[in-house]
Design a protein around this nucleic acid. Structure first.
Length: 417
RNA sequence: GUGGGUGUAGCUCAGUUUGGUUAGAGCGCCAGGUUGUGGCCCUGGAGGCCGAGGGUUCAAAUCCCUUCAUCCACCCCA
């Protein structure tokens, strides 16, 4: 038997309504903040991700699905995240020319070759939001506020917002060096991973979860004490506005992002109910990325949200009934009027299904029940002779006979009025 | 990439420790009975290469090896 590829999942009919719901909430809410949808390809030239995300990140170094195109000359990669492709598109079409404050969002699958786990798949789905060209702190706050409004509208509770600033090219390099020096002194007391990170990416040591390292990591120099004046002011203003809006957050000097492009404000929303993969959404400012990818010096900020993780945390949506009306032609000649009525009902916006198999009456009624039909329409020999349907109310268990001509209006009245 | 748990009916799982008639239950599905034409209840039925491959044995769902899948954790991240 051929099975789905490891780490991929089918979204089955019973689950798809939950997906449609969080997608609809996203579209409706983001539109109120002025965001429009952008859809970029699921694969891009490998170089885009290598340059955008950073060659030394784990994502690029060991998690991407990369393959040669058939001409053997081009290396292609399934997108591991959304931002790089969107930035590429913004540059390619000069979208910033027509809109100095460009706001876009995207929904769709991303691909990373990791070991599957709870809330972690090789093909997973993200809601992604990006705002370009606004450098003032107000957009940081707006986008955080919108992210929280979104997950709350989806029914998420018991989450925590974590906030930090990772500096910018003026102050971060010096801090990274300070950090590295501090680490070198005590390298022998750190776990193997952190010893390696000391040289490759000292910031990631701050993210270490090994219990024995915690005391030492807590005592490391903090970036807040090494930010330049501009970054300090920016961060202070973000926090002031969040306070003004009454948005609760926790500042963590240890919140770092796994992608190299982030600057200044970074944030993450976590939930304790997710197990090890506790991050529901993460994002931040990336003021240098557009320029790094060959575009103008345009600031940017955004976040990505894991849809599988969001769905793990939100209550299951009650499925919509699949039929409002279920037709049961019992009489020998009952199929034709049923067929005609079915079409007419659907034309009137009523979800109508009929039994095609001609099974037992009992099983047809069971089917009507399972489909969630409010009315069962029965057409036996007697009804056929009188040219009328027996309309049975499945909830009240009452029924009456309605002539062929009046049955559509009767049902419209009952279902809508 | 590393560790541990789990793979038996469409779904959730007994049975494996201690090998031994024809492999079970609940839910779901199909049919029948009862009923206020469906829901509750009762009866019957269909549905399994016991994840796959190899080995041990008179005999394997059960023991051994390999492999695949899945879950959890490390790691990484959303």
């Amino acid at each position: 038997m051929i099975q789905a590829i490891r780490g991929t999942r089918d979204i089955l009919p019973d689950e798809s309504s939950a997906w449609q719901r969080i997608e609809a909430v996203a579209r409706r809410l983001f539109a109120r903040y002025g965001y429009r949808e952008i859809r970029t390809p699921v694969f891009e030239q490998t170089e885009l991700f290598a340059r955008g995300i950073g060659n030394d990140t784990d994502i690029v170094a060991k998690e991407m699905y990369t393959f040669a195109d058939r001409d053997e000359a081009t290396s292609l990669t399934l997108r591991p995240e959304a931002t790089a492709g969107i930035v590429r598109s913004v540059i390619e079409h000069s979208l910033f020319q027509q809109d100095p404050a460009l706001k876009v969002y995207a929904l769709g699958p991303m691909f990373r070759r990791e070991r599957p786990q709870k809330g972690r798949y090789r093909q997973f789905h993200q809601v992604d939001v990006e705002a370009f060209g606004i450098s003032r702190p107000g957009i940081d706050v707006e986008i955080i506020e919108m992210a929280l409004a979104y997950i709350e509208a989806c029914g998420l509770k018991n989450h925590e917002l974590i906030l930090n600033s990772v500096g910018d090219p003026h102050c971060r390099p010096a801090y990274v060096e300070t950090l590295r020096q501090a680490l070198r002194g005590q390298q022998h007391r750190l776990c193997a991973d952190c010893q390696r990170r000391t040289e490759t990416n000292p910031l990631r040591v701050l993210d270490c979860k090994v219990a024995e390292d915690q005391a030492l990591v807590e005592a490391l120099p903090r970036i807040a004490d090494h930010l330049c004046a501009e970054c300090t002011d920016h961060f202070a203003e973000v926090r002031r506005q969040l306070d003004l809006l009454g948005i609760a957050y926790r500042v963590s000097h240890r919140l770092v992002r796994g992608l190299d492009y982030y600057t200044r404000t970074t944030f993450e929303v976590v939930s304790g109910e997710l197990g090890a993969q506790n991050s529901v959404l993460g994002g931040g400012r990336y003021d240098g990325l557009v320029k790094d990818l060959g575009g103008p010096d345009l600031t940017g900020i955004g976040f990505a949200l894991g849809m599988e993780r969001l769905l793990l945390l939100t209550p299951a949506a009650p499925g919509e009934p699949r039929a409002q009306v279920f037709l049961l032609p019992l009489a020998a000649g009952g199929q034709d009027p049923a067929l005609l009525l079915q079409r007419e009902l659907r034309g009137s916006g009523i979800a109508a299904l009929m039994d095609h198999e001609g099974r037992s009456f009992k099983s047809r009624m069971k089917q009507a029940d399972k489909l969630g039909a409010r009315y069962a329409l029965i057409l036996g020999e007697e009804e056929l002779a009188r040219k009328a349907w027996t309309v049975r109310d499945m909830v009240g268990s009452t029924q009456e006979e309605v002539p062929f001509q009046g049955v559509v209006d009767y049902l419209k009245e009952k279902l809508n009025g």
